[in-house]
């Protein structure tokens, strides 16, 4: 692509979904591109208000359904503190046992992402975890990442993997993140988690690649008995583990 044929915006646009090479009007962007942007913005706003439909997950067995203390989507957006706590009824619905890991499919800020990517990642990672004691699958409504800590505590799991919808973007409103936390407890800091983000079908990370990275993280965390910033991803492939910084974990990118 360097010399021949010459670089064109059309060619470059194949390398990224970023809005590069936009036609201009004076200093600014042409009207058609501005209107397309406004359309995408409204669509993303609609995705925020969508709810998670468990029946569309096509799961082999019915999951345990839990919800946070946020009563509706609007309260969920305004009150992250409520989204991090289980409702009273949900707390009682978790059967206590002894598990290595619990997987939670959670709506976060894009129920559609969790619906599309959650079952696919789950199916891909299960064969990689032979010998692990895996808790019954949990589906969480109006959930923030930290809700997983309480879920794991209730179930008696040593690790929780939150599979949660990221906040919708203009190019992709169906992107999911995985947050893996070893020894989760209520009040676990974000620096104690590892994240695999941007799992989606519009040029993002594939479910298979995400599952491979997740399996590596899980096995390494089990070996070292910790997760978080001290668990550096030194695998050779693109591993998608994310450190906490303002542009990542602190943010509510994934409905934290």
């Amino acid at each position: 692509m360097t010399d021949d044929p010459p670089l064109t915006w059309r060619g470059l646009q194949a390398t990224t979904s970023a809005r590069i090479g936009l036609p201009r009007a004076g200093n600014t962007i042409s009207g058609a591109a501005v209107r397309e942007f406004q359309y995408a913005h409204v669509r993303a706003r609609h995705a925020v208000s969508a709810t998670l439909d468990t029946s569309r997950l096509n799961l082999p067995q019915p999951p345990i359904a839990v919800e946070s203390r946020a009563r509706d989507r609007e309260e969920y957006v305004r009150r992250p503190d409520l989204g991090r706590q289980l409702s009273d009824g949900s707390r009682e619905s978790l059967p206590h046992g002894r598990y290595d890991v619990v997987f939670v499919i959670a709506d976060g800020l894009s129920a559609l992402a969790a619906q599309q990517q959650g079952p696919a990642v789950l199916a891909a990672v299960m064969p990689l975890l032979a010998g692990w004691r895996i808790a019954p699958l949990v589906v969480a409504h109006r959930a923030r990442v930290a809700l997983g800590d309480e879920i794991a505590t209730g179930l008696g799991a040593r690790c929780v993997v939150m599979m949660i919808g990221e906040r919708p973007g203009l190019r992709c409103a169906e992107s999911m993140s995985l947050y893996m936390t070893w020894n989760p407890r209520i009040g676990t800091r974000d620096s104690g988690r590892n994240c695999i983000s941007n799992i989606h079908g519009h040029g993002g990370l594939s479910a298979m690649a995400a599952a491979n990275s997740l399996a590596w993280l899980l096995k390494t965390a089990r070996m070292r008995n910790y997760s978080g910033v001290d668990l550096k991803d030194e695998t050779c492939t693109i591993g998608q583990t994310v450190r906490p910084d303002l542009h990542k974990m602190l943010s509510d990118k994934s409905g934290k």
């Binding site: 970023a18 809005r19 936009l22 200093n27 600014t28 973007g169 990118k253």
Partner: peptide
Amino acid sequence: AVPGSDDIMLNYQSLSYHDIQTLRS
């Protein structure tokens, strides 16, 4: 500034490269 105001990785909207030109002008 990001391309066309749309950060496709962090999924939020910032300024566009063009906006910097607008401000210079």
